[in-house]
Amino acid sequence: MSASRLATAVLLLLCSLSQAREVLRFAIDAHNPPFMYVDSQGVAQGLYAQTLRQLGERAGLTLRIEAIPWKRALAYLEQGSHGVAGIYRNEERQRKYLFSKPIYREELVVYARKGHAMAAYSGIASLYGKRVGVLSGWFYSDAFSRARDEKRLLADEAARDAQNVDKLRLGRLDYLIGIRESIAALNQGELEEAGILASNLTYIALPDSPRSRALLLQLNPHIADLPDKARAP
């Protein structure tokens, strides 16, 4: 083999090894158990961390999963440095990012203090003029976003569900919105469901790039093979 061909072969081998060692970075929320959270050792845990690990293993990819505040996760997605798991899809996000097949479905419930519900939730107008506990950086529904932007309701932000639950218990909120499984772990019988705000599919979102499109081609075929608890019904 000539020296030039040998050099080319070595270069191709090095490129191949470099790609094989590529670490793909993903972010999840650090404060949303049981779906996504960080444990006492600083390790990302929960349904979406498990889903990412299973997909990475099945697709032969090396993933680095970071559990961080949700606003920071969204900022990293915006910057193009990370993918994000457990995210809802809306029109604005669809214009900017690429989305996997759905990986789960979350049901967003409106909660009130037990015996203190002003009225059952019957549509977004039920929340007009009310103080509603939400999580910082979260999208809930298009109707909720419009009502919030038009200041028809007061969205009171917190970093985690436990803070909203405490504020509702103390009467500092009229309602809070949370995922049923997340609030169930915090509810000691003082909260009751006032209605369902939305039922949202969750996805993996990636920066819009040729590399991300290729990555989705690797990940999507394995989503259908995930265990039932890690797939959208």
Rank of each mutant, 00 (worst) to 15 (best):
A3H: 12
R5Y: 11
L6Y: 12
L6N: 10
L6R: 13
L11I: 13
L14V: 15
S16Q: 09
S16W: 09
S18G: 08
R25T: 10
A30T: 08
N32H: 15
P33Y: 11
F35M: 06
G42H: 10
A44D: 00
G46C: 09
T51R: 04
T51Y: 04
R53K: 15
A59P: 08
G60C: 10
T62Q: 12
L63H: 10
P69R: 14
R72G: 11
S81G: 02
G83A: 03
V84R: 05
I87S: 07
N90V: 00
Y97N: 13
L98A: 06
L98C: 07
F99S: 01
R105M: 01
L108H: 10
L108I: 08
V109T: 13
V110A: 06
H116F: 05
A119W: 09
G123I: 05
G123Y: 06
I124P: 02
V132G: 05
V132W: 03
L135K: 06
F139H: 14
D142A: 14
A143N: 09
S145I: 03
A147F: 10
D149Y: 11
E150Y: 09
R152K: 15
A155I: 04
D156L: 10
R160L: 11
A162T: 08
N164T: 01
N164C: 02
K167L: 14
R169M: 00
Y175W: 07
G178Y: 00
I179H: 03
E181D: 14
A185R: 14
L186A: 07
N187V: 13
L191E: 01
E193N: 04
I196T: 15
L197P: 07
N200Y: 03
L201N: 00
L201R: 01
I204S: 00
P210H: 03
S212C: 05
A214G: 11
L215T: 02
H222F: 02
I223A: 01
D225V: 08
K229G: 08
A232I: 00
